[in-house]
Structure formats: structure tokens, C-alpha cells
């Protein structure tokens, strides 16, 4: 693994009113690695990721992106740094077809830039989905006719088309069937192979052992465990999540 982290967050603190949500978090993310971010409800996983995707601005602490100190004030700045987030709500337009969803906001156009080049858009969409190994009946299907796993795959594929350096996924396998989970996990592996750093937030611990290189455990706004996946067992992971280990630093 490279020595320079793609992202290094140092001593990130953020409070909402009297509640201190993050109490000095250090997090490093390396190129092409899948980092599992776990913790009980309210541990601060989502808040931490929202700091990275520009939704929240931390009260103190620093972020270093590929060796350069940066600040992220809003979601647009995060996008410009090629940090993409797939939120739990997926942000898909149900009645639009798969290709339109993939290219929403940047549709290829022709005819003096007036009309959408549908042929090209669907061809590009199919190419992109094939590359990621996403199986969908047709790029002409409306997203509302797809299964949960397919919808999740479309949302991830859309994020990937922005060629992110960092891809944050919030609970991508929640509420999916067994086959569907498999589909999404395979997609995450494919995304990783392209050199993207992935941060995976999930409650499904068995998924972590399948795709992650490293797991970071948050507990009450602090990181209390951070090890390579091979150093974890299911039991030791559960102990960490419930806060039954000493801070490992």
C-alpha cells in the first residue's frame, strides 16, 4: 500500500449544540483500499462522512488530501475534489430510465446542443454498466421497475461515472436480498479494482469481512479501533463496536 494517504483527517471535532458528535477523530484512507467504517447508532459515522462530503464543516481539525491541506465547505467542493457519496436515499428519479439517471445533469447532446443524444447516452450507459458488471435488463427501463439491488447498483455506477478518487457509501446493502447483496458487494470490489478508495458504512458486519481491507470502529465520537481486516474476528469486531476494548492507537 502506498505511503501517502489519499485522505488524512486529523483531530476532527464537531458539536451540534451541547452534543459533541466527533471528539477528535483521526482517519486515514489509502488509494485503492476499501475501508469499513462501523460503530453503533449515534457513534458519529454519518457525521464523519458528512464532514468529508461537505455537508458539515468541522469545528476544528484538518483534512489533508493527497498531501495538500484542504477545507471542504460545501458538497460542490467535495465533488470538485472527486469525493463522491452514495447516500442511503440513492437520489434516483424513479420515472426516468436507467441511462437518464446515470447521466442526469450531463446528458450528451447533439443537434446544436438542443436535443439529448439518446443513442449515445444509452450506449455509454450500457458500456459503463458492463464495465462494472452490473446486470440490468435494459438501460431503457424506468428505475422504478428495478429491484433494490439494481437501483443501488445504478446509484453506485452513477457516482463512479464522475471518476471519483474517494467513494463514500452509506449502508449500500441495507434492506437487500441475499443475491442482491452479493451483486452490490461484487460491484464494490470492481470499483476498488479501478483504484478508487471506498469508505463503506454498514451495519452488516459479514459484508465487511468480504470486501474491506481495513476496519475503523467509531465509539461515542472517537475512533477506538483501527486494524487490518485479517486482525479482526467477528467477535473482536463486535467487542470493539460495543466499546469493550481499550483505545487502540
Amino acid at each position: 500500500m502506498n505511503d501517502i494517504p489519499r485522505i488524512a483527517m486529523k483531530d476532527i471535532k464537531i458539536s451540534f449544540g451541547s452534543i459533541q458528535s466527533l471528539r477528535g477523530v483521526n482517519l486515514e484512507l489509502y488509494p485503492g483500499e476499501v475501508l469499513g467504517l462501523v460503530g453503533d447508532n449515534g457513534a458519529g459515522k454519518s457525521t464523519l462522512m458528512k464532514v468529508l462530503s461537505g455537508v458539515h464543516v468541522p469545528d476544528s481539525g484538518s483534512i489533508v488530501f493527497e498531501g495538500n491541506p484542504i477545507t471542504i465547505h460545501n458538497p460542490l467542493e467535495a465533488k470538485k475534489l472527486q469525493i463522491e457519496t452514495v447516500f442511503q436515499d440513492l437520489a434516483l428519479c424513479d420515472t426516468l430510465d436507467v441511462a437518464s439517471n446515470l447521466f442526469l445533469g450531463r446528458e450528451p447532446v447533439h443537434f446544436f446542443h438542443r436535443l439529448i443524444d439518446k443513442k449515445k447516452m444509452h450506449a455509454l450507459a450500457k458500456e459503463e454498466l458492463d464495465r462494472l458488471g452490473v446486470v440490468i435488463p435494459s438501460t431503457y427501463s424506468a428505475v422504478e421497475n428495478l429491484s433494490g439491488g439494481q437501483r443501488q447498483s445504478v446509484a453506485i455506477a452513477r457516482a463512479v461515472t464522475y471518476q471519483p478518487k474517494v467513494l463514500i457509501m452509506d449502508e449500500p446493502t441495507a434492506a437487500l436480498g441475499v443475491k442482491e447483496v452479493r451483486m452490490v458487494l461484487n460491484l464494490i470490489k470492481k470499483v476498488k479494482e479501478t483504484g478508487v478508495s471506498v469508505i463503506l458504512i454498514t451495519h452488516r458486519l459479514q459484508d465487511l469481512f468480504e470486501v474491506c481491507d481495513r476496519i475503523t470502529v467509531l465509539y461515542e465520537g472517537k475512533i477506538i479501533d483501527n486494524r487490518l481486516i485479517k486482525d479482526f474476528t467477528m467477535d473482536s469486531l463486535i467487542n470493539s463496536i460495543t466499546g469493550e476494548v481499550k483505545e487502540a492507537k
Binding site: 458538497p75 460542490l76 436515499d89 440513492l90 437520489a91 434516483l92 428519479c93 424513479d94 420515472t95 426516468l96 437518464s100 442526469l104 445533469g105 450531463r106 446528458e107 447532446v109 438542443r114 436535443l115 439529448i116 439518446k118
Partner: peptide
């Protein structure tokens, strides 16, 4: 056939996702 029309449908389906697409 146009972006304008696609966004009109998109706004009706999920306004927030069209906004997030910039």
C-alpha cells in the same frame, strides 16, 4: 428529447436528486 424535459420529469419524480445532480 431535451434536457429541459428530462429535468421536468425528474423534478416531478424526485426534485432533490435533480438538484443534487447540479
Amino acid at each position: 428529447q431535451t434536457r429541459f424535459g428530462t429535468y421536468i420529469i425528474g423534478i416531478g419524480a424526485n426534485e432533490e436528486s435533480v438538484r443534487r445532480a447540479g
